[in-house]
Design a protein around this nucleic acid. Structure first.
Lengths: 199, 199
DNA sequence: GTGGTTCTTTACCGTACAGTCCATAAGTGG
DNA sequence: CCACTTATGGACTGTACGGTAAAGAACCAC
């Protein structure tokens, strides 16, 4: 009887998280001030603190949402329709295109946060570890499928190949931030898969 | 007659830059305060500002030094003794081992700085672009050599392969920061080259 | 309506920040 | 010893920071 009482919130939590994400993504964690966050979200400090706790908690909340989205996206592609090789191709082309499409070339929020904070923040570090472990597992499973369907050399160690693909993926993410041409990034993703394909 | 006058400096510039590098590397640009820098270097604010200008200039100075070192290191390996394939192997094993050996897994300072600052700082962005272009060129040249000596499939596009290797290299750097095992990183570097080798 | 609860707004707090200034120290040439 | 120049180190400045407190507003149950 008490759970629905009191003044109702004047904002949509998801929209606020989205605005906060944009801010953290644009400037990084340390460089975004509370002022930036209140400006971006339209909320006052009191509301922000009441709803999400301090800056760090809000950031972790944002980061978790982002991680879940990205992971679901990767999972959707890698376990979706088409042959395993097609799915891998789709994923890598999507990655190359996605990072190119952002005119600011901000890359992946989780990658950026990991780079910025991992060595001083165990919570961020552990999120990074588990996330990329999950992607690695998805890649390895898909590589195994591709081996079963005969599109990737069955002799290769699937784990080895999956990890290699993970590295290429992260490499593309970074090179996009250095301003490398979209065509070159696409070329890399294609080259990686072509090297693996049975020939 | 005037160039050697005045009170002599009480510090070694290279040592100061090294200490500052350590600080920026540990905490990133935004999160290291001037206090951190004076503590790390032992210099007072006046001396720091007199010698290097403000925080940003000092940082760029540090970054340039780091970039030159790294680039020279890569160049030394890739144009050193041994077959081109051996040199590539040496480089990639060195990268995997190097990033693993740091207990804090801080990765590469230039990569971290690029991730943190590139989208808001053209000076950092341009340094990243040119640096990785240079590494790319070195890799491509070495791949061509390897093709000439017959250790890499001559049919492949050397530029494509070189860029792929660059991506793998950066991927390894990042995965090291996520805490991936040293053995796994080594495995990735070996897998990348094994895929390319004539078979 | 009243009382209770939660959200919003604004003012406020202490601190730490980047950067400047200045008196003084430590050298040089003469 | 005396001018002159440069480096040092601490005091200082104004600002912006993250975070808190408190007063009032908006809704509920009754």
């Amino acid at each position: 009887m008490l759970w629905n009482m009191g003044r109702p919130r004047n904002f949509d939590e998801n929209q606020v998280l989205e605005s906060a994400r944009k801010q953290f993504w644009n400037k990084g964690y340390a460089a975004t001030s509370l002022q930036d966050l209140t400006d971006a979200t339209g909320l006052g400090k009191g509301s922000l603190y009441g709803a999400f706790g301090d800056k760090r908690q809000l950031f972790l909340h944002v980061l978790d949402g982002y991680r879940d989205e990205q992971l679901n996206g990767v999972r959707a592609v890698l376990t979706g329709p088409g042959t395993a090789f097609e799915r891998l191709t789709l994923l890598f082309e999507g990655v190359a295109k996605g990072f190119t499409e952002d005119p600011q070339r901000r890359g992946c929020l989780l990658v950026n946060s990991t780079s910025e904070l991992h060595s001083n923040d165990p919570d961020v570090a552990s999120r990074a570890r588990s996330s990329y472990q999950a992607v690695e597992d998805l890649l390895i499973a898909c590589v195994k499928e591709a081996q079963d369907e005969g599109t990737i050399e069955p002799g290769a160690d699937a784990q080895e190949v999956g990890r290699l693909l993970l590295a290429v993926m992260q490499g593309i993410e970074f090179l996009a931030k250095t301003g490398m041409d979209g065509s070159a990034l696409l070329q890399i993703s294609q080259a990686a898969l072509q090297q693996l394909s049975r020939h």
